[in-house]
Write a protein that binds this DNA or RNA. Structure first.
Length: 502
RNA sequence: GAGCCGUUAGCUCAACUGGCAGAGCAACUGACUCUUAAUCAGUAGGUUGGAGGUUCGACUCCUCCACGGCUCACCA
């Protein structure tokens, strides 16, 4: 870990410079600066302006961070960066007089405000001729190198501000993320969905098979759990008459960390009354195609060297069909998954637990044998009912649930099903989960009696879906790790890092 | 939680089977009134992630620890 020690020479020199500025009556941390123009916008808008037109603009004021300075004796060029881009500054001793010494004393990283007139240099670059400038914030630590940038992934994650500061590709990823979420909201709002917020702290963590984080409310003297999913609350809202609801928010699962898992992750979850999972497949196709067009301008793009094509309609494969193809034998929902693991799978399903439930075995088979083959967008439909304790049972085959998962580039992007709205069956399924919990499955669903009671008041037939925003971002931003699309991914505490308490 | 790989100057990286720890950028001093990875001359900068061990001698070999990356387990 490359945290700069506080006593290195570069930092000491800058502290000395700071003290010197103060001794000369200059406030290195100035206040408000009246900005009339933004750097990147100016450069963009005046790309083709003539000298006469530049003169016509008159005085401009800009503010931002100095990235580099190029000294030439009695002149100095510098690059000023704000959130719209960069513009070049040109300072001359004969124009700034005594102030010129202060200007050349500036360091890369300092924030300043400048006022001056625009001109174009011999090489055609739009530049502000500095007439006056103000110190806005002194940088006491040196910036990472201007040419190679900041490569160390650990520093990029721990000190994301540095990453964003020097790596424009990283900035682009998070700007894209913001646009992605905005597009999703507009898409759903336009279709009559209501955005809601449901509890992150829940007395009974429900809606997903996962281990929760525990916390404690002192005044209530009550243990609460960070939610693993908003599902049961969103369905209560459907009972309450909000026929189309969605929430974009964090879920928390107390499990391992990997390139595809962060303890907190952002999920879009939405519910549509009177629809089934077939409707949601269509909606999902439309949504992702819209997002790809809006963000990337195309339905085809590369993910980590693989060509992905979102052109609909997407392939649909039944859960057991997928396994049949992978195993080369006919697999039916009635088959014994453990026999398949021991027989046809021929050792390809490693770490399978003989004492595990059929649900776990089905899941293991699918994850090991089918998921790695799903590069082009594929809906896997008709999951074993045991894997889906909140989903509606298939009318034609009671061993299956009306459920699909969407895979793109081997990433599980979405999970959806027709919701179980029969309170008696829901109660029975919860009880089955309780049995599995008794047997030691810490991820089994908890019995939520109030949720069952809400179903007893009647919930219209409803289809619901969850889309992992972080994984979707990996796909659209062509990033190999979730940590590259989460601003502050979870890492171990490090000495001297941001986790240190003082 | 397990295995493998990594951690060298502020940043990006070198250093052969164990033999004086280097470069570029950044910094500092000086020169330079249209440069843009500015240029030129010079200077300084290191407990080689930490603690032990082997050795005449350790960035290099061994043990332990910390952190990270990848793979696996778990999971979405």
């Amino acid at each position: 870990m490359a945290t700069a020690p506080d006593d290195n020479e570069l930092i000491r020199r800058r502290h000395a410079k700071l003290a010197d500025l103060r001794a000369r009556g200059v406030d290195p941390f100035g206040g408000r600066y009246p900005v009339t123009h933004w750097a990147g916008r100016l450069v963009g808008q005046l790309a083709r302006a003539t000298d006469e037109e530049l003169k016509g603009v008159g005085a401009v004021s800009a503010a931002g961070r100095l990235l580099t300075l190029r000294h030439h004796g009695k002149t100095c060029f510098a690059t000023l960066k704000d959130y719209t881009g960069t513009i070049q500054l040109y300072a001359r001793a004969d124009q700034l007089g005594d102030e010129y010494g202060l200007f050349t004393d500036l360091d890369a990283g300092d924030f300043i405000g400048v006022t001056g007139e625009l001109f174009r240099t011999r090489t055609g670059e739009l530049t502000i001729r500095v007439k006056a400038f103000a110190f806005l914030a002194k940088a006491l630590r040196p910036l990472p190198e201007k040419w190679h940038g900041l490569k160390d992934v650990e520093t990029r994650y721990r000190q994301r501000y540095l990453d964003l500061l020097v790596n424009s590709e990283s900035r682009a990823v998070f700007q894209l993320r913001s646009r992605l979420i905005k597009e999703i909201r507009e898409f759903l709002d336009a279709r009559g969905f209501l955005e809601v917020e449901t509890p992150m702290m829940q007395p009974i963590p429900g809606g997903a098979a996962a281990r929760p984080f525990v916390t404690h409310h002192n005044t209530l003297n009550l243990d609460l759990y960070l939610r693993v999913a908003p599902e049961l609350y969103l369905k209560r809202l459907v009972v309450g008459g909000f026929d189309r609801v969605y929430e974009i928010n964090r879920n928390f699962r107390n499990e391992g960390i990997s390139t595809e898992h962060n303890p907190e992750f952002t999920m879009l979850e939405f519910y549509q009354a009177y629809a089934d999972y077939g409707d949601l497949m269509e909606l999902t196709e439309t949504l992702l195609c819209h997002l790809a067009q809006a963000l990337l301008g195309s339905l085809t793009f590369g993910y980590q060297g693989q060509a992905v094509d979102l052109t609909p309609p997407w392939r649909r494969v039944r859960f057991h069909e997928g396994l049949s193809e992978a195993l080369g034998v006919v697999v039916t929902p009635e088959a014994d998954p453990w026999e398949l693991i021991r027989g046809p799978a021929g050792g390809r399903v490693v770490h399978a637990d003989p004492a595990g439930t059929p649900a776990k075995h089905w899941k293991a088979l699918f994850e090991m044998l089918v998921e790695p083959t799903l590069v082009q967008p594929t809906f896997v439909v008709d999951f074993p009912i045991e894997l889906s304790p909140l989903a509606r049972r298939n009318k034609d085959n009671p061993a299956l649930a009306d459920r699909f998962e969407l895979f793109v580039a081997q990433l599980e992007i979405a999970n959806a099903y027709a919701e179980l709205n029969d309170p008696e069956e829901q109660l029975a399924r919860f009880r089955q989960q309780a049995v599995e919990r008794e047997r030691g499955d810490e991820e089994a669903h908890w019995l939520d009696r109030d949720f069952v009671r809400s179903l007893e008041y009647g919930m219209p037939p409803t289809a619901g879906e969850g889309i992992g925003i972080d994984r979707l971002m990996m796909l659209f931003a062509d990033q190999p790790s979730l940590r590259d699309v989460i601003l502050f991914p979870q890492l171990r505490h490090s000495e001297g890092g941001s986790a240190t308490r003082e």
